[in-house]
Design a protein around this nucleic acid. Structure first.
Lengths: 332, 332
DNA sequence: CTGAAAGCGCTTACAG
DNA sequence: CTGAAAGCGCTTACAG
């Protein structure tokens, strides 16, 4: 049988209450008893039972993590594991634990959220994606259960979130290309149901507008999916109208497809990706990309949530993580 | 205040004991009361408090996962996230939860194991690597705490583990190369402190021996690290003695280095990697590699451990996951 | 500064 | 088949 607070109390000749107070570092305990209790704990190799504490405290010091299951992309794009590491690092600092679940579908994800909340397993939840009309967000809001979203959600009222400034990222990127002499700059974005798709497109548009460059709708394409094939097809479509000086994509896989097209047709076009996945470095030519600092996103998501749980509420309920442009051969 | 078992009991006009028995599907409960209780639960939207159950049951139905923190490799090699997914899938089936922690160092990992065990947070632990003289394994063994290791540990006595058959993987691979006419086959392995390094080397040697092909020690190199640079250097060293027909490496990154050398020097050499990371497909030429089925490894690790926890002990305490040779251009 | 007692929300051996 | 009671290992308001 494991040693409990009672055993320690007996050995130290104090009450269990006192032992408990020593453990939780209650201030009003004399140094003398403190020492006696610590000695007894050492002697018995006493370790508090976390589960019992949880029950008495109505808190688990545990965060729940929902990982959307996106098949292949999950493996090629280290976003999730990087974010998890960031989350883990901050959580460890604050002595929080992390539980996770893969959701095979949005319905699945909702189920896990329900379970986390209902069973009282976790004190707060981290969502690693935000959908349009996100059921998890709706539910958590209704229950007033603490949570944070990685990726700016649609309705940000009273929701904690962390994200990059996607608008600024493409805005700066396009400015950069213009300064290097590009005039016709095409754009291959992702589905507009993702808010980051919209933001990235806006950044692109704004940069062109401010510089009085023509925005040609024909050179702006919304890919159905973030795949090489879609990137390739989009580039073919663009080139059928006009071969641009540069093409900005909002995902590395799209960028890979564009590179394939460029290589096959021996074109001279600058290409950029987004996310800076490890594969980018290995393309021929290596692909210039925007690093979104996934680990920082995770770290700050955990920070925002834990501070909230500890009652230290930030003046702002979100955090913006800067991106970094990684320039490689594809924009040389 | 959340609704508890008492509220349900009151509404259903039974005792809390009865409600509890309904929840845990105790067999000796009449259908009639069962229905009344279920109705009451529905009406009150009652959800069992997992923490209270844990305490009363002295079990959490939770698995602890230790993820070694291997920096860059963690992102380029999706092994861990794939294994985690496999673990998660099986665990979900059996209604187990998963907690994880990154360890920044072996010491760190040991601390997390201590914490998992002492605090009674988890019922069992999954180790995602095995070191020589592994402190975690020693400790868990001493404490007789249930655990499973992904990767065959050194002292397999009474330890549960899952792994590939690394011997067979290289054995078959080398046979394959021989049958395709390769005579001089070089080998670039990893540090011998990893048991899989030894096994892979043995498989290579055995294949050559059985076919009466000379084993030239000069063509066998132990890389210090699994990096491209080490692969490149090893290949340079090999070629200074003799340009082989093929070179077998035990890690894709080593293979990438070899490919770089081969490309630069315009050699005609077949090259193979190991692990089949996504980058392999994108090499020029694409790299033939051994897929180790990381998701299966995770799945079966969870299975072995959970079966053990549920008292269904397997006749064997380990499980071998088959590998798959993914042939690509580099061995054409 | 410290203790006795009640409580957190479940489970289960015992008794009927 | 069901209930009363004790227990899981902590915490904390109350009293001193």
């Amino acid at each position: 049988m494991a040693v409990t607070i009672k055993d320690v109390a007996k050995l130290a000749n104090v009450s269990p209450s006192t032992v408990s107070r020593v453990i939780s570092k209650s201030p009003r305990i004399s140094e003398a008893t403190k020492k006696i209790v610590y000695d007894a704990m050492d002697e018995l190799k006493y370790k508090p039972n976390a589960i019992a504490r949880n029950l008495a405290n109505a808190s688990t010091k545990t965060l729940g993590l929902i990982i959307p299951n996106q098949d292949e992309n999950l493996f090629k794009n280290p976003f999730f594991i990087q974010a998890m590491r960031g989350i883990s690092i901050y959580a460890q600092k604050k002595n929080y634990k992390i539980m996770f679940n893969y959701g095979a579908s949005p319905e699945d994800e909702l189920n896990f959220v329900h379970e986390f909340v209902n069973s009282k397993w976790v004190d707060g939840i981290i969502l690693l994606t935000a959908y349009e009309n996100d059921m998890c967000i709706d539910y958590l809001n209704r229950e007033s259960f603490p949570f944070v979203v990685v990726g700016r959600p649609y309705n940000i009222h009273d929701i904690m979130w962390v994200d990059n400034d996607n608008f600024q990222a493409t805005y700066n990127l396009v400015n950069n290309l213009i300064q290097r002499g590009c005039q016709d700059i095409a754009f291959i974005g992702g589905p507009q149901k993702y808010i980051f798709s919209k933001d990235r497109l806006e950044g692109y548009k704004r940069s062109l507008e401010l510089r009085n460059l023509n925005l040609r709708d024909k050179l702006v394409i919304e890919a159905k999916d973030f795949t090489e094939q879609d990137g390739y097809n989009a580039m073919a479509q663009i080139c059928s109208i006009k071969v641009p000086h540069a093409v900005v994509t909002t995902d590395d896989l799209l960028g890979f497809g564009v590179l394939n097209y460029v290589r096959e047709h021996q074109l001279n076009v600058k290409v950029t990706g987004f996310n800076n996945i490890p594969l980018s470095e290995y393309q021929i030519p290596s692909l210039t990309s925007v690093d979104i600092k996934a680990e920082d996103l995770g770290y700050n998501a955990a920070k925002l949530l834990i501070k909230h749980l500890e009652g230290i509420d930030n003046p702002v309920n979100h955090y913006i993580v800067g991106t970094e442009l990684i320039e490689r051969e594809s924009t040389k």
